[in-house]
Design a protein around this nucleic acid. Structure first.
Lengths: 332, 332
DNA sequence: TTGTATGCGTTATCAA
DNA sequence: TTGATAACGCATACAA
């Protein structure tokens, strides 16, 4: 493969001149420049990024290691990151850990060795030691959509407790009293926080406590199962509204209810969480708590860039606010 | 940042020995090895991938430039790629062109300069000159989910004409005669092929031709609009079944019909295309034509690796077969 | 305006 | 088993 040397030989100039054409074009006479450029085309010359990077020390690349590339939520976060990256002329590489710790570690290692400018990561466990190790080994890191409690890392997340509160307050406003929470396992921080918020909202209003319909995962399938369990309750004890820990659960629940002939929201009102695209496109458009996921990505990217080139950077934990989007599944 | 030299000094050995600890550990006495390893930990040593890459010429990285990271279809393809990549101990970087030519070009350039081992790409235009240019500049490329007609590139795609045929044959089997095709614009190769297949299937069966309900894009919103237009038709001329160019259209159509009080499939049967996850999770689970997207990714990754290290590699255009998944939206 | 020389961090070759 | 040295491809400072 042709390098600067070959181009120089082919164009009958020195190696330094070729380099100048590449990096300081204005300092080269138009005639020689043309000669050199022709030679580059002819030989199919491609800059070797590894070599230039070796000289300059840093690359113009950011990376986002995400939990689950198939979840529209994370790809939207990535779009926000990319927006900031692009305006700073950075490229963004996305890596999918797919909820596997070994892959998360492998990608982080690879990226650190690659000396990318900064790493954004939605980790499986925000307290994991290998996260802090990345920063310690010299690459700026920002945790996205999680807030590490004990670590000196930047992070950007959304207030899930508030989100849970917004959801039940909306249901209370609509006149509901018997409210169920569908979600689990509580080992997931997100789920736990949303439930805490829901309980807080009910407490403050003096309303009866939630009935928890525990699920084993936050999937459509589990949402259907939850639906069966709600249908199995005696009519008098059946809740009039359900707040689901995410939209997948809500969609599954909705599907089960509609399939069984119940009306939403008349027989049961539903609130989801995340406001994924398909929430609005469901048979009964879903009320949902929206996270500012675009903003999440933008802010995270800004932080990581600041950490990379501002010597006075100090770590900060940014918390953004969610917002309720009311649709047919609660309004009728 | 500490390099091999610093480690060597710190451990009181030569630079070459450090390198051996890294690459030929068995050739180093346990005692010195320990000394060196301690020094590495102490200094927070991280291999510089750019430098090692500069020596060895190639990296262990594949990249997938995708059309739209928010579309579950492409992330599933990516999962298939990653499966093959992982078993060959490659990392996969995903890049999102987001349907913008300038970004596609920018990413391809960046990746070529980075000397990645191979590039997979679902391009905006499979005939674009810059695709062939990538291969010409020395990086193996495989086109995914598109089949370039005029170019000497490897590709893996799915037979959309057959998919269209499968859809209408299923509807014919279910006794439908007045069938509509919902989709557009026909400038999209995918849309065109599926329509061609649908027409072929009807022709062969001697059934009346499709009514085309043209859309401006393949989105949920356009699906709803198409629904309005179908509802506007006089009852006698209204189709009894609709084949949609993709699942988003089908979901929009479904939403509009159910919202207007029509029954699916009794008043109108619906077939979608892609079998995205939410097709099965819709209020009325959707019959859809499934593409083997996992397989698509796996095969593409195999091809690009073959192109990278098999000197006798010859370009091939692989075409995979779709499959119909029947659900409630046509079965009742 | 153009050419020459040096170094970036690593690996590989060879000699000790 | 270990150490010295050249080379990878490029960019930069400096000399011509």
């Amino acid at each position: 493969m042709a390098g600067v040397k070959d181009v120089a030989a082919h164009a009958g100039v020195s190696l330094g001149t070729v380099s100048n054409v590449l990096n300081q074009p204005h300092r080269v006479s138009p005639a020689t420049r043309r000669k050199v450029e022709e030679a580059m085309v002819e030989l199919g010359f491609v800059r070797n990024e590894a070599a230039r990077h070796l000289r300059s020390g840093r690359s113009r690349t950011l990376a986002y290691v995400m939990l689950d590339a198939a979840n529209p939520f994370f790809t939207d976060v990535a779009a926000g990151i990319e927006e900031t990256a692009e305006s700073g002329r950075f490229s963004l590489y996305m890596c999918n850990s797919d909820n596997r710790v070994d892959r998360e570690v492998a990608y982080l290692d690879h990226l650190v060795e690659q000396r990318v400018q900064g790493i954004l990561v939605t980790p499986i466990d925000p307290e994991a030691a290998h996260l802090a190790a990345v920063a310690h080994r010299g690459t700026p890191v920002v945790v996205v959509d999680r807030t590490p409690r004990e670590q000196a890392l930047c992070s950007v997340a959304v207030d899930d407790v508030l989100g849970g509160r917004l959801a039940v307050e909306h249901l209370l406003d609509r006149g509901h009293e018997r409210i169920a929470f569908v979600g689990g396992p509580e080992s997931i921080g997100q789920v736990r926080d949303r439930l805490v918020g829901a309980r807080g909202g009910l407490d403050d209003a003096g309303a009866p406590p939630v009935t928890v319909i525990a699920t084993e995962a936050t999937t459509v399938r589990e949402g259907r199962t939850a639906g069966e369990r709600i249908l199995g309750l005696p009519r008098a004890k059946r809740p009039t509204a359900a707040f689901c820990a995410n939209d997948l659960l809500a969609l599954g629940l909705l599907q089960q209810l509609v399939g069984s002939g119940l009306a939403v929201p008349d027989d049961l009102a539903i609130v989801g969480y995340d406001d994924i695209y398909f929430a609005g496109a469901a048979a009964v458009p879903l009320t949902s708590v929206r996270q500012p996921r675009h903003e999440l990505g933008r802010r995270a990217a800004q932080l990581v860039l600041d950490e990379a080139d501002n010597p006075e950077h100090s770590h900060q934990q940014v918390v953004l606010l969610p917002e309720l989007v009311a649709r047919t599944s609660t309004l009728g």
